[in-house]
Simulated scan of single mutants.
Amino acid sequence: MEQRGSGSLLAQPLRPPSPARAAAYLGLFVLGAVVAVAGALVQAGWFPGGLLLALAGAAGLFLGGARAAGSRAGAVAPVAGWMITVVFLTATRPEGDFLFGAGGGSYLFLLGGMAVAVICATLGGGRRPGADTARLGK
């Protein structure tokens, strides 16, 4: 590996994910969509307990995906599925039907879900250097 003058290693180039990892990310994306639909139905039914349950379910999926995949991409895949589904659920149709009402609980679900997504993606494990390149305290 090549070193710079400061002694740090150059960043390794990114490789495309393996087929198994790509399938896992696709599965997490679909789970994010399922959790979004379930959360949209539950949050309005049992307010405020349903809202907390919906956000806890989303947080569990986002953080669990990050831990299972061992990377932040494991959190980003279900977040993408969740956000795309929520945006489609908020759009009105020509018939006038839509899933979310104009109440405060719907806005708390949308904004709270986005906040939970950012927190879980931040907490999800990022790239870590291997044991041979990490400098341990003396």
Results as ranks from 00 to 15, higher is better:
P48Q: 13
R72N: 00
G125Y: 04
G105Q: 14
L136P: 08
G65P: 13
G7F: 02
A33K: 00
R15G: 07
G57V: 07
G81N: 04
F88V: 13
G70S: 09
P48N: 13
V35H: 07
L89T: 05
I119L: 13
T92C: 11
A11L: 12
V79K: 02
T92L: 11
T92W: 03
F62Y: 07
G65I: 06
R72T: 00
A115H: 02
V34C: 03
Q12A: 15
A66R: 02
G126R: 06
P17F: 05
L14T: 11
M1T: 07
A40L: 10
L28C: 06
G74R: 04
A75C: 13
A33G: 09
G125R: 12
P19W: 03
L55F: 06
Q12V: 09
D132M: 05
A68R: 12
G104V: 11
V30Q: 01
G101F: 01
A56D: 00
L111G: 10
G50T: 13
L14H: 11
G105K: 06
L108R: 09
G65C: 14
S6N: 15
R4C: 12
R135H: 08
T85K: 05
L61H: 08
A44H: 14
L99T: 14
L55Q: 05
L31Y: 06
L9K: 00
P129C: 09
P16H: 03
L10K: 12
G65V: 08
A38F: 07
G32Q: 00
P13F: 10
G39P: 11
V35I: 13
Y107R: 10
G70F: 00
L63P: 08
Q12E: 14
D132F: 04
T85L: 03
L136N: 03
G112A: 05
F29R: 13
G32I: 01
R21I: 12
L31V: 13
L28Q: 07
G60Y: 01
A77L: 06
V30M: 03
L99M: 10
G125D: 04
E95G: 08
A59L: 12
G27A: 08
D132S: 05
E2F: 10
L51P: 15
R15E: 08
G101E: 00
L111E: 03
A91H: 14
Q43N: 11
R67L: 08
S6I: 03
G50W: 06
L110I: 06
G137F: 08
A36Q: 02
G96R: 01
A115P: 10
G101R: 11
V116H: 00
A66D: 01
V42K: 04
A11T: 05
V86L: 15
G103F: 08
F100K: 03
Y25V: 06
S8W: 01
S71H: 10
L52Q: 08
G39E: 01
R93Q: 12
A44N: 14
F62G: 02
V42R: 05
A73Y: 07
F98N: 14
V30G: 09
G7P: 09
L28R: 01
L108K: 08
R127I: 04
R93D: 06
A54Q: 00
T85A: 14
A134G: 15
